[in-house]
Design a protein around this nucleic acid. Sequence first.
DNA 1: GAGCACTGC
Length: 663
Amino acid sequence: MVEARSAVAQAREWHGIQKAQERLPIAEARKQLIDLVKAHQTLVLVGETGSGKSTQLPQFLHRAGLAEGKSIAVTQPRRVAAIAVARRVAQEMGVQLGAEVGYAVRFDDRSSAATRIKYLTDGMLVREALIDPTLSRYKIVVLDEAHERTLPTEILFGLMKQIQAQRKGGMKLIIMSATLDAAKFAHFFDGAKVIYLQGRQFSVDTMYVPEPVDSYLDAVLRTVLQIHVDEPEGDILAFLTGQEEIETLQRLIPERLPQLEGAESLGKLLVVPIYAALQPEQQAKVFEPTPAGMRKVILATNIAETSITVPGVRYVVDAGFVKARSYNARLQSDSLQVVPISKAQARQRSGRAGREAAGKAFRLYTEAAFLGLQAASAPEIQRVSLASLVLQLKQLGVADMTAFPFMDAPPKAALLRALELLLALGALDADGALSKPLGAQLVRLPLEPAFGKLLLSGGAMSCSEEALSVVSMTSTDPVFLNTRNKQEAATEMRKQFLSPLGDHITLLNVLTAYMKVPSGFPKNERGRWCGERLLNARSMRKALEILEKAVIESKNDLLLGVQVPLKSCENDMDPLQRAILSGLFMHAAILLPDNTYKVIASGQIVSIHPSSVLSGRKPRCIVFDEILRTTRNYARNVTVMEPSWLPEVVPAFFRKMESSGSL
DNA sequence: GAGCACTGC
């Protein structure tokens, strides 16, 4: 079979960077790559999908002895990718996983002292750096998928720059990226050499709509049906923004299909949804082979952009939007909005049609609209809370955040907010240094600092078991399922766990009940238990995994490696509520006459989210996880508190608020 | 009385 490569289709997208014919297949470039790594401290490798850069290059370097007895670290933004690539490389090299080739991701470490090629999530490598700031066991660090600009990779960029200066040529860095940003990476690392590798991607014909569409949902519906009528066999992947849209089309497509002209002679359509919060058994359906004589339509969120590759897809329908969360430091709130995708995302989506054969992509926006999209979405560092990042940089010895070599400086307001929060939590001293023991403990915990403080206070207040359950449950996707047709049943089911004290304690009740269900026989009893109660089984498993990991580490009365004895407050929830307040006091709020709440720290006006068990109950004083701005400011995950606890639980914060007249 | 995209330690 002759492969129709993407060179022609993508030529325009490569314009200005490098001509297509100058890209090399990785096997042919092997000798050249080894020489280049020898000659340069930093290399930027631009590789198309399927270029083999993640699997083959580390093997070349290892065999050529370039690690000089040390190890090669290869980071990935996602744990499944780290595990999958490590497996493949171990297999290709014919070695046992965990020996010469291994991986390390959260909850799963398959590496040893003998490991020479180690695949890790980027967050894991940051964790290693917190203990060993010069990453002394590695000679080569490979940052894969660098164009995704995740927060941990951002730390690693600056850190590697510092390490390279310290280790004077003793540390090699290879940045792997999609086309975008290659020049920027090269510039940041003082003129690093840029190389282009050829991939194995089939051509994708990209179509635009001639005029903007009124409703992209309707346009997706019509396009899917049109493809089914006009195009030869091959599955369809449609990108939408969320669960609600997916459920709508799941209903509409089978409704409309029989109304088409000549519908009798058409094959059947199998409509399959895929999004992160979907139950695992449902998710598995996208990977099942399409039955003969049928065509599969996959309705997906951006989970199918990078995290999941669906086989059999020949047609992509791209609505052009994504639901994105963004942090506003000034308002100290997150917002969740449907926004246009970036050019990079549009290309990524279209590319999903050309994994196995030539395909077609239907973009439901005009070409002019595409050209007007921003090149890539803003790096994470520009749009999230920076509390964890600041804490980690302090641990890495960065006293002044503005002196750290960021590739793109984070917003000043976000840095200030992070410093304020860490000071208020007591994680930093008045002079801005990591405090002892609290700051040092918080860095070790794999939690947002506020939730770490909640957990540590739980230890101090003799309710660490309950506090641990609360942070485990808030660290997962929502556990209460909410599909449109089962809403009333879900509300009814939730009643058995409901606590008048609020959502955190309700979540605690859910986890406590879940843990009493036998995990062994009968098979999948816990999954069935969740199904009957309309709870998300995946979220529950994850919460329990976090909790159990902490409990295992709590042998010798250590909780997650910090000095916290495991204790239960039994049925007295008072200490737990105080522990919650001690972590989340920046989100303590007081009832106003119009039934909204005023956040004490910021003066923000919020309403209790209607999904909260406290919605409509009007407690005088509340404390909650976060402010989410959709149609208005909503407080999510809310617990009742007493104003009189403030001076006792968070005295420094209380005095500051009192003197500023906020109380 | 609204509706949570996606990752990770």
